[in-house]
């Protein structure tokens, strides 16, 4: 699916990530943890080709990210659902249109028949016509998740998806992600919420990765 081989990255100053080697196997569930500023978001951006590595190689669906054209990147993003902490919606469009946006830009708007079921699944069936600014933090996160999976992607990447949520809402979102994983989707969640990770590990075999000293390591038994 997505593989990092000796990947390094810097924003022009010192190196943020160094010699990262990792492979996200199909159907796997990973957490990526580490202190703020450690490079979790950068790692995710490398995984969906918003950033290109300054060293090493990132392969997305067996293609070298550095060799991908802009259209290749767009097509790969239709197979990778991304949930941002700040969600990033088009505020002038109702929720249902925002959720269907990946289908719209792929000229597959006609495939949006299961939208109601999807919105019901994330508990937003009654808010289909609401505008994004009218939603609470938790509702926005669940809407972002719905948008991320509407194309039935192979991989779901979530960047601090529970950052602004209370514990109950965090658990609800985690449950949705676990369900997706059981459907065969590959999940990678960047988070610093250890309780969330412990909760997930009680439900399934998730691997926990930690960014430390610019490298990604498998976290120990302290979790």
């Amino acid at each position: 699916m997505i593989a990092f081989e000796n990947v390094g990255f810097n924003y022009g100053g010192g190196e943020l990530l160094s010699d990262v080697t990792l492979r996200l196997a199909p159907g796997s569930f990973h957490f990526l943890t580490g202190p703020s500023g450690a490079g979790k978001s950068t790692f995710l951006k490398l995984a969906y080709a918003e950033l290109r590595p300054t060293a090493g190689r990132v392969s997305i669906f067996d293609r070298d990210a550095r060799m991908m054209t802009r259209d290749d990147v767009a097509l790969s993003r239709r197979r990778i659902g991304v949930v941002h902490q700040d969600c990033q919606f088009l505020d002038h469009l109702p929720l249902v249109t925002n959720v269907a946006l990946p289908l719209t830009v792929a000229s597959r708007a006609g495939d949006a028949q299961d939208l109601t079921a999807l919105l019901d699944w994330v508990g937003l069936g009654k808010l289909a016509d609401a505008l994004p600014p009218q939603l609470s933090g938790g509702e926005r996160q669940r809407a972002a998740l719905a948008r991320a999976i509407i194309m039935s992607p192979d991989v779901v990447l979530a960047d601090e998806p529970t950052g602004n949520l209370d514990w109950d809402m965090s658990l609800r979102l985690l449950t949705l992600l676990v369900e997706l994983n059981r459907m065969g989707k590959t999940i990678l969640i960047a988070t610093h919420d250890m309780n969330l990770i412990r909760q997930a590990k009680s439900q399934l075999a998730a691997r926990v990765l930690r960014i430390q000293n610019r490298r990604v390591q498998l976290a120990g038994a302290d979790l």
Binding site: R70, A74, Q88, L90, L101, V105, A106
Partner: peptide
């Protein structure tokens, strides 16, 4: 940015 994120090609 949102359009690119959800897979829109430049032409779209």
């Amino acid at each position: 940015r949102v359009l690119r994120l959800v897979g829109a090609k430049d032409a779209y």
